[in-house]
Nucleic acid binder design. Structure first.
Lengths: 372, 372
DNA sequence: AACTGATATTCAATCGAATTAATAAATATC
DNA sequence: GATATTTATTAATTCGATTGAATATCAGTT
């Protein structure tokens, strides 16, 4: 039973009509379960559906779309498909869309926001009925998305805090995440904690920091300004790694003691680990490292990376559901609340890259300076 | 200049016709540069193209597809989007397709080959003009693809050796890769090498092994059967990691000495590293590990993973080009050679997970037994 | 017997563009 | 000057499905 369909000539609506002895109109009404089919007796309905099945009829999507002015597609604009963060979100979206009649049209911006306009134009040309943008932390022009939204095409952004006044978004509770990361390190006994924060211009980064600060305040912990580094705002895709490495080197050379690093995201964390390793410091024995995201590599690297897990899959699912809901209530003309952000709860995943602080000395008098 | 298009009402062909003072036919001929437009004077042509541009005319893809029976799309069936191997290939495909008139319709099989048939049906419904299947090492039913090929839809598979008699494919030269991996370890002085091979049923795995054997024979090296482990054929997506871990534990417990592990792929290699680490063996000091693929994580893990790089991007590009070529010469009815496999050259990428063998003891007398 | 309303089915227009056959004017040929 | 030929443009059909208006049948009402 592996043949997909035996005859190569297309079966059209009127083929079914002819074969079943009814008119194309009737066939259409029946197969679409249109309201007008309400008076058509079951006998007719059965006959029609049977012949349709027998002939292997499949409606021509183009004819249908042309007539109905609906494409049955949802645009999915992914900022970078190679970013595992985006990929997992995308898979969540697909999971929700698969059982529906909507086909995702996936476009990959390859980390080049300059071309965003072009992609969106292509999507409009293809008459997408909804738009989901899967963003990583790359900055791009929001006004383009707002344009789409203006056109009555429901739009949502997943993964990033866009801080747009009009566009709804789905993202992780960054503050809770920052808080949890900090708490984890604190509970392991770390008091001298270094930070590699995200770019200042990035909303997500600021909010995570807010969570970190909140925990520190509550715990009565003072954060040393010397131990705070910021990733630059103008970074390519993978340069989180390089940034993390460079900034961690700064930290090491600053000569201020620290026993743990809280990194902006997993890639940054890996950069930190590399830098520490090159400086002869073992993770987690000499220094704990915690990331953010929980990309797949976090599980299979050695040591495993302790991190704040974003529920990427669920975020994608939620976004897809949101769009589907919008599409259902189309025409009701009740616009959803503007600029809403739906926050998902992050989860701490403790792996090998964090460990209790200083198993040896209880008295804090003996400080190991790397360089005087 | 961020507005994508000002007016929300669609501009149709006859709008342009009215505005320019010509008939829809003429406008269509001019804008498509159809053969019949050869007698139309430049004056007319210019006027029409100008008004078209002025009004912001964009042909309706559905109307066009309905009439011309061409969808201007290429189906891209990805076995697992979360697999970085697939992702990078996909990006290569996109790079080549972007400048053309063809839009990729990406479908993700989520590692569930049972649903393949359904996806292919959806693609046929969407009238894809060509099909690129991005395969990882998951086994699936080839006959489905052969069906597509039968329908005059050019088909190609990237990334896997399908061993199909009819379908063309693009993949890495597995034998050369196996050879190079082996050579690398040998040149570092390793003589006692353990292997975690891929599933026996997998063609790629067998060919890699062929390369390994060839080098061993040339170098006069005997391979110990005890040090050869095979991944099971029935594995989920990420279980390469678990498999690698489990089989490496077997190796460790076998008590036969080895100073390097040649793993089937990067994920397997990471499993091996984890197992070694848990057994107290350091990589690369106590044991070198080499992988295959060069997934992104290989670069940012610590130590970096030495591996055989597959040119994933280029493979994708090549596949896309192949399909485009087939589409160009459509109608010429000269079928391409059947079942061709285009081999791409792999590259050794030496990173931190491999190191010269035994800087210390020359005499191999002192064996550390894990358990008797 | 004429009329109403529910039931059952179909006609015909439409979506927007591509394309073939047809027409009209200008020029060339004998 | 009648007839080809080239140049320039268009009317009309087609792709395949949807849908509002129209028609036809029948049971029930007065």
């Amino acid at each position: 039973m592996s043949k997909i369909s035996s005859s190569h000539r297309r079966v059209t609506l009127s083929d079914v009509a002819k074969a079943s002895g009814f008119s194309p109109s009737t066939v259409s009404l029946v197969l679409n379960e249109a309201p007008l089919s309400r008076y058509i007796p079951d006998k007719t309905k059965n006959k029609i559906s049977e012949t349709a099945k027998r002939l292997g009829y499949r409606p021509d999507v183009f004819a249908r779309s042309l007539r109905s002015q609906r494409s049955q597609t949802v645009g999915v604009l992914v900022i970078d498909l190679a970013d595992p963060f985006c990929t997992l979100i995308l898979q969540g979206i697909e999971r929700k869309l698969l059982p529906t009649a909507y086909l995702p049209i996936v476009m990959d911006a390859h980390n080049q926001p300059q071309q965003l306009e072009r992609y969106l134009e292509m999507m409009i040309e293809r008459r997408i009925e909804g738009l989901i943008t899967v963003a990583n932390w790359l900055l791009f022009d929001i006004t383009l998305l707002e344009d789409i939204d203006d056109r009555q095409i429901p739009t949502v952004v997943v993964g990033r805090d866009l801080e747009s006044p009009t566009i709804n978004s789905v993202l992780v509770d960054n503050e809770a995440g920052g808080y949890a990361a900090m708490q984890h390190l604190y509970e392991l006994g770390h008091r001298d904690i270094a930070f590699v924060r995200g770019p200042r211009r990035l909303g997500d980064s600021r909010i995570r920091w807010k969570g970190v600060r909140r925990f520190a305040t509550e715990a009565g912990l003072r954060l040393s300004p010397t131990l705070i580094q910021d990733l630059p705002g103008t970074m390519g895709s993978n340069s989180g790694f390089e940034g993390g490495m460079r900034l961690t080197n700064n930290l090491i050379q600053s000569a201020e003691k620290f026993t743990a690093i809280l990194a902006f995201d997993d890639l940054t964390a890996y950069g930190a680990i590399r830098a520490l390793s090159e400086a002869g410091r073992r993770v987690p024995d000499d220094c704990s490292v915690i990331g953010f995201d929980d990309i797949p590599a976090a599980a299979f690297s050695t040591p495993g990376l302790t991190t704040i897990q974003q529920p990427m899959g669920e975020m994608g699912e939620y976004a897809a559901e949101y769009i589907l809901k919008q599409l259902e209530r189309r025409g009701e003309d009740e616009r959803q609340p503007y600029g809403d952000a739906h926050l998902m709860v992050p989860t701490l995943v403790a792996r090998g890259s964090t460990a209790p602080n200083s198993p040896a000395p209880k008295k804090a008098g003996k400080k190991k300076r790397m360089k005087p």
